[in-house]
Structures are given as structure tokens and as C-alpha cells.
Design a protein around this nucleic acid. Structure first.
Length: 607
RNA sequence: GGUCCCGUAGCUCAGUUGGAUAGAGCACCAGAUUCCUAAUCUGGGGGCCGGUGGUUCGAAUCCACCCGGGAUCACCA
């Protein structure tokens, strides 16, 4: 939240002065340089004046030996300029070489222009990082656009189990990432408090209510929720309502207990989420949609646009059709928007389907100003994606729904898979996971895989302190940095100031070793990684980046073992020491800033 | 049968949205320490990127059709 406020304030300031001041992504910076050079060529008539730069990129070359920056400018523009790509490149190269921060330029392959950036530029970036602090990497890419991220949204019928952890962490980290990239994010949970499962919950709670009054309820019947977590709910109901419902008909108590039990379950779920560090901004009640007619509104809106009709669906193909009965229903013309079949909005008893409520829910989000929405769902909802996206398209031309499917987490203990079974009562709750492996480790590991790939979670391995555990690898790098600054520096240089603002203004021209420059370059990749990850809605990229950055740091650390001249602290040279402290501190800042996106606290020591 | 996701080193996975000679970690082999930690680093071998066509200057990436694995499939939520 604090981070968010800083972001916003910073952005305002940037807009008042010069937009470009804000750009931390050096590739964007140098793209401007390339475009400027091209404009100059257009002015002299060497190139046409109406060039389209849309596909022009400045990127790090795949192979670092090619240089620091590569642009495809010549290849992209060759056709427009009716010239051969190499010729355009040869023309552009000398222009780029004039720039103060560009040391050398060469043309390679089919027309790539590779540029090498001067050491002084990289050194200066250390100071930029230090003065930006943990705000380094923040971007204005999002332009403060409102975006809604809906995640978890588990039925409020019990505590969260391990299967919900991944979606919770993913949604939360994605939200952090989008905030960092300049979006105005709302985190949301939709409470499915209207469906038949809430009746089941209420009946289950009623049994516990009877139990609290001393009745022997025996075995919880099949079809009701057997969990102990409903016992205290029964007690609370007893305290609140006395014995008035004992032996009473369901019609008397059902509605009230639905409300009370749902509220109790949501309290439980929110407490569970909090142990993971997940707190959402909006908890949205599905029931409220039913109550105040917003489902009818949404359907009426679709009807007015001609997307609703009464009709009979074809029986599903290739599936057993024993109990299939054709019946006329209210249908949404999903096929007009890319879905495979049209979808029912009303059940045969006249109730709205869950899909109808979901349409109304997304309609509501849109009307609240969220033209961009992201839903995070479990793997079992994959078949639901098309129809929901069809509905959003039908509701609004400029509405955009991205659905992120989180694949299953496979559980292991020391290499042995183990199964969960609700019947056997050995299912693992979210709380079990957090208690056993810790919040930070859980969060990080959940983000070490792309969301749409399955993830193996081994209770033993994830807490192991070794290099095959990425959490510790990254944390270890951060701890080493803190350790040098806090413990070793005062021994060697008792009077040296090492606060960020001092380090931000020290002379950095002593940072000339190839591996030092390389480490700084890695730090400078951070803003670009953020933008790309935010664009793709893929927070796992941050975790992989941090691993790479840590690797680069550990490598440099060990170079100091072979070559004492490369250690961070050089006993007889305060100037180089301070420059290197500035460098490693900036690495530390990037690591903690990246970890903050993942929702993980950096550690300062690992004893 | 339809739809969606996946297929990259022996294993687990990245791959900067179409870029140059495809990368890490584990495992295997050979070495190195201690600025606050070997919880780390350095080097080595290992690949028809599931297959075949297509799109173009250029494909692991986009398109089509196959092959293999998983999820899902009318009134549940």
C-alpha cells in the first residue's frame, strides 16, 4: 500500500516535469535515441518522412557478446524505405555512434544493429537505483488504468486447503506486479453465497447447533459437510438464537443460518488468507446480485443487444446421453463470440444459473470502471473460460477479461507423492502448509513455475537450505549483502558512511571490472522485466529474474576469493570500497524490491 | 467425440511475445573456500525444441494437420 502511494506521487511529479525522467527502463530510453536518429535521417532526406516505428524494438541481444543493446530498426524499416536492411543499418550506425553513452556500434547478420554502452553509463545506474530505493523498477506503463484482479473466490463452506494456495499467491503477486507497473489495481474475492452449496452448509451448521444443545447427532450424514470447523459455528448459533430452532422446520431457520454460517466461513477464510499475507480490497457477495435485480439487468442489457433467445440446446456430442432431455431455456448466444455452444441462463425451475450470476458479476465490475479484468481460476475451470470471455465481449466492446488458470500442485514429501482424500480426513489445509514451511517459502515456491504448468511441491525439499532451493539461494545473496554492510564494513572502515543517500553520491568510476559491470547490467534489466511480466500477467518471471541476479552476485562474491582485489571491501582503499558497497547495496535493493512483488520478506542474516 | 492446457538435455523447468551458435538447476565428472558462512563458485560432457507441412529476411515461438500426456464437457458452483 505504501509502495502504491509512493508510486502515485512519483508519477504525478513525473508528469508535471518531464515524462522521460520517470523511465527506468534503459531499453525504452535507448529506443528513444534510435528513433531520434531515424528522425534526423528523415530530415536530411536519407529516409522517407512517414516511417512507422511500431515494431521497432531495442532489446538485450540474446548473446551478451554481441553487445548491450540490439535494435531491429533496419529490418523493420527496410521495406518501408524500399532499401536493403543492411544499407539502412549502415546509414543509421554512425548516427547512433555520436551519442555520448554509446561506445560502439556495429551491424551484424541480416541487419541487426548492436550497441555497446559506455561503462560510465552503467556506473551511473548504481546511483539511479540507490536514489530510487525500493521504487526502482516502478513503471508508468499502466497509465493508472483501473484493473480488477479476482482470485481465490472459494465457496464459503470451509477452510482453505492446499489446493487453493497457488491461486491465492498467484493473484496476490500479480496484483503487486501490476501496481508496480503503474496500474490502479483492485483485489477482489467473489463470495458464492447464493448457490445450493450454501443450503448444505446451513444444514450442516444446523446439526452442529443441535449438537451444541446436547443432542446426539451421530455420524454426519452423507452429503453434508462433516468438518469440525462447524462445531464452533453451532455453539455461536446456540448462543445467538437459543433453542428456538430445535425441532423446527427448515423453512424457519434456513435463511438465517445461511447468512450466519456464510459469514463465519468467510471469517475463517480471511484469517487463512492472512496467514499467507493475502488481503483483498473487495469481498463481493453474489447473493447481492440476486437480491437487487442486477442479474435481470445484465440479462436485459444482453437481450437489448440481441444476444439472448429462447431455445433448445443440442445434446452434448460424444457423451452418454441417457438422461438428456431437450427443453426450452433462456440462452446466451455465446457462439457469436467464439464459444462452442450457446449457454443456459436459467434452470428448469426458473432459477438463474451460476453463469447468469457470473455475467451479472462481470457486468457489475465493468460498470464499476474496470474495463480490464483478470480472473484467476483453478485447472478444473478451464472449460469455463470461453463462455465467460464471450459474455464480457457481448457486454462491452472495450471490456477485456483475461483468465489465468493455475494448474494443480502435486504434493510430495521427500520425493514420495501423497494423496489427499476428504473421506479419509487427511486433507491438508492452507494453514498446515504455512505452519510447516512458512509464508515466505510457500509464496516463493508457488511462483517458481508458470501458472499454466503443474507444480511439484515437496514439503521436505522446499525447506531445505541448499542451492536447489531457489528461495534460499536468493535470500542468501541478500543476507550476504546486508552482512558486508552491517558487520564487515564497520570493522574495516569505522567512520565510513553507508546509508543510501551517501552511497548514491559516491564516485563510481572505480567499478570497471567486467564482472562488476555485468552485475550492474543485470540490475538494470529489472524495470524491463517488470514491464514484460506485467504485460504478460506472469509474476513467475520475477522469481526467475531474482534467481539470475542472485547467481550473478554469488559469482562475483566468489571471484573475490580467487582475487582479493575484487573483494567488496579493500582495506587500504576507501574509495573503491565505497563504490563497491554502493553497487552491492543496489543489488540488495533490487532483490528486496523484487521479493516485495512476490510478497516475500528479504532476510538480513541466515544463521 | 468437442474444447482448453502441456510436449525443450537422463530428471525438473526457463526461453525477453518472431531474432543471431536454444539456456539454467538437479544428476554425473574434475577443481576452488571462508569480505559473514561450501547454504557459494569455476570448468566439462549431454538436444531432429513431439512429427510433417505452411507463413517470411528469420520459427522452440505464429498457422494447419497428425502423435503422445493432462483437465474439462447440458439445469453443480
Amino acid at each position: 500500500m505504501l509502495n502504491y502511494l509512493i508510486c502515485r506521487r512519483f508519477r504525478c511529479k513525473a508528469q508535471l516535469t518531464d515524462q522521460k525522467d520517470y523511465k527506468m527502463n534503459i531499453f525504452t530510453l535507448f529506443r528513444d535515441v534510435v528513433v531520434e536518429a531515424l528522425n534526423n535521417l528523415s530530415k536530411t532526406g536519407a529516409l522517407p518522412s512517414d516511417l512507422e516505428y511500431k515494431n521497432l524494438t531495442v532489446e538485450p541481444p540474446r548473446d551478451a557478446s554481441h553487445g548491450d543493446l540490439a535494435t531491429n530498426a533496419a529490418m523493420v524499416l527496410a521495406k518501408q524505405a524500399r532499401q536493403n536492411p543492411r544499407a539502412v543499418a549502415e546509414m543509421l550506425a554512425p548516427q547512433l555512434e555520436k551519442h555520448a553513452d554509446i561506445e560502439s556500434v556495429d551491424v551484424a547478420g541480416p541487419g541487426f544493429i548492436n550497441m555497446r554502452v559506455a561503462a560510465s553509463f552503467w556506473q551511473q545506474q548504481v546511483s539511479t537505483i540507490l536514489s530510487s530505493g525500493t521504487d526502482y523498477g516502478a513503471s508508468d506503463m499502466g497509465g493508472n488504468e483501473k484493473i480488477n484482479v479476482e482470485y481465490v473466490s472459494v465457496n464459503p463452506t470451509g477452510p482453505l486447503h492446499v489446493g487453493h494456495v497457488r491461486g491465492a499467491v498467484f493473484g496476490d503477486a500479480l496484483s503487486n506486479l501490476l501496481i508496480k507497473a503503474g496500474f490502479d489495481v483492485t483485489r477482489e474475492y467473489v463470495i458464492n453465497d447464493a448457490g445450493g452449496q450454501i443450503d448444505v452448509l446451513a444444514r450442516s451448521a444446523y446439526l452442529r447447533y443441535c449438537e451444541a444443545h446436547g443432542r446426539d447427532v451421530g455420524e454426519i450424514p452423507e452429503g453434508l459437510y462433516p468438518g469440525d470447523y462447524l462445531v464452533p459455528v453451532g455453539v455461536t448459533l446456540k448462543e445467538k438464537y437459543g433453542d428456538q430452532w430445535l425441532d423446527a422446520d427448515e423453512s424457519v431457520w434456513l435463511e438465517q443460518i445461511r447468512l450466519d454460517a456464510t459469514a463465519a466461513m468467510m471469517e475463517l477464510i480471511r484469517a487463512d488468507l492472512k496467514t499467507l499475507g493475502v488481503v483483498q480490497d473487495v469481498y463481493f457477495s453474489e447473493l447481492s446480485l440476486h437480491k437487487d435485480g442486477r442479474i435481470q439487468d445484465a440479462i436485459a442489457d444482453l437481450r437489448s443487444k440481441g444476444h439472448i433467445y429462447e431455445g433448445v440446446l443440442e445434446p452434448p456430442k460424444g457423451q452418454k446421453t441417457d438422461d438428456w432431455e431437450p427443453r426450452e431455456q433462456t440462452l446466451f448466444r455465446a457462439t457469436a463470440f467464439g464459444d462452442d455452444v450457446d449457454r443456459a441462463l436459467q434452470k428448469s425451475n426458473g432459477d438463474y444459473t451460476y453463469f447468469a450470476a457470473d455475467i451479472a458479476y462481470h457486468y457489475d465490475k465493468y460498470k464499476r470502471g474496470f474495463h480490464s479484468m483478470i480472473d484467476v481460476w483453478g485447472a478444473d475451470h478451464g472449460g469455463y473460460v470461453k463462455r465467460m470471455q464471450s459474455a464480457v465481449k457481448a457486454l462491452a466492446d472495450d471490456g477485456n477479461l483475461d483468465v489465468k488458470i493455475c494448474q494443480l500442485v502435486r504434493l510430495f514429501r521427500d520425493g514420495e507423492p501423497f494423496k489427499m482424500s476428504k473421506r479419509a480426513g487427511n486433507f491438508i489445509t492452507l494453514r498446515d502448509v504455512v505452519e510447516e514451511v512458512g509464508r515466505d517459502v510457500t509464496r516463493f515456491i508457488m511462483l517458481t513455475r508458470k501458472n499454466d504448468a503443474p507444480l511439484d511441491f515437496d514439503f521436505k525439499k522446499v525447506t531445505e537450505q541448499s542451492k536447489d532451493n531457489p528461495v534460499f539461494y536468493v535470500q542468501y545473496a541478500h543476507a550476504r549483502i546486508c552482512s558486508v554492510l552491517k558487520n564487515r564494513t564497520p570493522e574495516a572502515f569505522p567512520d565510513m558512511k553507508t546509508d543510501d543517500s551517501t552511497l548514491a553520491s559516491v564516485a563510481l568510476d572505480g567499478l570497471t571490472d567486467e564482472s562488476e559491470i555485468s552485475l550492474i547490467k543485470q540490475c538494470c534489466a529489472f524495470p524491463r522485466i517488470i514491464e514484460a511480466a506485467a504485460e504478460a500477467h506472469e509474476p513467475h518471471r520475477i522469481a526467475f529474474y531474482l534467481y539470475d541476479l542472485a547467481s550473478e552476485f554469488h559469482s562475483l562474491w566468489n571471484k573475490g576469493n580467487d582475487n582479493k582485489g575484487l573483494r567488496f571491501i579493500v582495506d587500504d582503499n576507501a574509495a573503491i570500497t565505497q563504490a563497491r558497497l554502493a553497487m552491492i547495496r543496489s543489488v540488495g535493493l533490487v532483490i528486496s524490491s523484487g521479493l516485495a512483488i512476490l510478497g516475500v520478506k528479504p532476510v538480513e542474516e541466515m544463521r
